[in-house]
Design a protein around this nucleic acid. Structure first.
Lengths: 230, 230
DNA sequence: AAGCGCGGACGTACGGTGTACGTCTCACGT
DNA sequence: ACGTGAGACGTACACCGTACGTCCGCGCTT
C-alpha cells in the first residue's frame, strides 16, 4: 500500500512509442518484442493484446513517424515554395527519427495519415495548373527524391563511419586510371554536407517543374480560363 | 565409388549466389544461414569459414547485385543520354533482382565495384562541363532519384497488393473534404505504370541539368578552353 | 448485493535464428 | 613418414516471434 503502482495502462500507442524510442536509442536491429516489453515493464505476451504481430508493430512505428510530418498549408505561398516545404517536411522527420526511416520506407502505411502528404502534393500540383496525370507523376517524382535522398544520406554516413574505423585501408590504392574522377574529386566527395546536397537536387526538380509549367503542360487551366498573361 | 560426389568446393562466391537465389525465390526474410547452408547441402558452420557473419554475407549480396550494373561507355553519345543510360542501368538491376534491392540500399558496398557507378556519373558530369563540386552534387541527386524511385515502386506494389487482398475496405470512406485530390485523381493513382513514372522524373532531372549547364555552371570548360562553339 | 462474463495481463513452451567453440579429417610440404 | 594447417562439421547457448492456456479484476445484469 506504500504505492499501488498504477501503471498507466498498456496501450497500442504506448507500445509504438516505446518501440520508436528503442529504435532511435539502439537501432532497428535492437528492436524485439521482448525488449519493448522490458521497456514498458510488462510481460512479452501482453503486447499481443494490442498488436497482432511484430510486423504490425513496425507498421505502427512507420505511421507514428509519418504522422510527425508538419503540413501547414499557407495559401499565400507559391506552389513552388509549397512543394519545397513539403519535401523539406519529409527531411525534417527524417532528421527527427533517423533510425526509423528504413522501417518507414519498407512498410506500408495504409491509414489516412499516410495519404495526407499525398493529398498535399496533389493539391500543390493542381494549384500549379497541371492536369491529373501529370500531378500524380510529379507527386511521385518528388516522393522518390525525398526517399532516395534520405536513404543515400544514411548509406553515406554508414560508409563514412566505416571508413573512419578502418582508416580507409583499401581505399587509397584504387586503379588511378579507372577511378580518375573519384580520386580527383576526393575532397568534394569527402565534404559531405547533406543539407547542401539535398537542396541542390530539390532545386533541380523545382526548376524543372517551373519549366514544365511554362511550356504548356497547364492545359487544364488554360482550357478553363483562356490564356491570360500569355 | 559409384560416384565420389565431388561437391564443387564451398566458396564465398557460391555462398553469395545461393543467398541471392534464395532471396529472389522466397524473399529477404526467408534468408538465414541455415537455409543457405541447406541450399548448398552443407553444414551451417561451414559457411563461417568463408563469411565472417551474416551481415558480411548481406554485404556480399549487395555487392553482387551492384556488380550486375551494365556500364558500357559509348563516347559518341551525349552526356544527357549517358546520364539517362546510367540511371536506367540502376533500374535494370532493380528489375533483375527486385527482392534484393532493399538489402542493397541498406548495406554498404565498400569495394571497387561500388565506386564504379560513382566514377561513371562523375565522368559524365565532368564531360558536361560542370565543376567538381557541382559534379558531385549532380551525381548524388541522380543517385537519390534512382534509389528513391525504386523504393517507392516496391512500396507502392506492396500497397496495391494489400489493397487487392482487403478489397480496399477502409479506403472508400475517406473524408471527401480533406482528401479531395486523392479521390479525384483515383484513376491516375491506381494506374501505376512504373516505367512512365520513372522516365517522367528522370526527364525532369535531365532537363534541369541541361538548363543548369546552359546558364553558366560550366565555368571549368570555358576557362580552360575558351568559348568554342558557344 | 450476488453472480457472471469478458477483456487483458501473464507464464509456459516450441520451433527457428546467429554464432562461439571444439573436434575431426585430409591434402600437402617437408 | 610425419607434422601442419585449412576447412567441414556437431554441439551448445542465448535470443527471437508467437500459439496457447490460465487467471485475475472490473462492469454489467439480475
Amino acid at each position: 500500500m506504500v504505492s499501488d503502482t498504477p501503471r498507466p495502462a498498456l496501450t497500442r500507442d504506448r507500445i509504438v512509442q516505446a518501440a520508436v524510442a528503442l529504435i532511435e536509442r539502439e537501432g532497428a536491429d535492437a528492436l524485439s518484442m521482448r525488449r519493448v516489453a522490458a521497456e514498458l515493464d510488462v510481460a512479452v505476451m501482453s503486447l499481443y493484446n494490442h498488436v497482432p504481430n511484430k510486423t504490425a508493430l513496425l507498421e505502427g512505428v512507420a505511421e507514428h513517424v509519418v504522422a510527425g510530418l508538419e503540413l501547414e498549408r499557407d495559401p499565400a505561398v507559391s506552389w513552388q515554395e509549397g512543394a519545397r516545404a513539403l519535401v523539406r517536411a519529409f527531411r525534417k522527420v527524417a532528421h527527427d527519427y533517423p533510425r526509423c526511416m528504413t522501417i518507414v520506407f519498407t512498410h506500408k502505411v495504409d491509414t489516412a495519415v499516410g495519404l495526407r502528404p499525398m493529398e498535399r502534393a496533389l493539391a500543390l500540383a493542381d494549384a500549379a495548373g497541371f492536369d491529373g496525370g501529370t500531378a500524380v507523376r510529379i507527386m511521385r517524382a518528388l516522393l522518390a527524391y525525398a526517399i532516395g535522398a534520405q536513404m543515400r544520406e544514411v548509406g553515406m554516413e554508414k560508409m563514412l563511419g566505416h571508413l573512419a574505423e578502418t582508416g580507409a585501408k583499401s581505399w587509397n590504392h584504387l586503379d588511378p586510371e579507372e577511378f580518375r574522377h573519384v580520386i580527383a574529386y576526393g575532397p568534394e566527395l569527402a565534404a559531405h554536407v547533406p543539407e547542401t546536397d539535398f537542396e541542390f537536387g530539390l532545386d533541380l526538380l523545382i526548376a524543372a517543374l517551373e519549366a514544365l509549367a511554362r511550356t504548356g503542360a497547364e492545359r487544364t487551366r488554360a482550357a478553363g480560363a483562356g490564356s491570360g498573361t500569355g
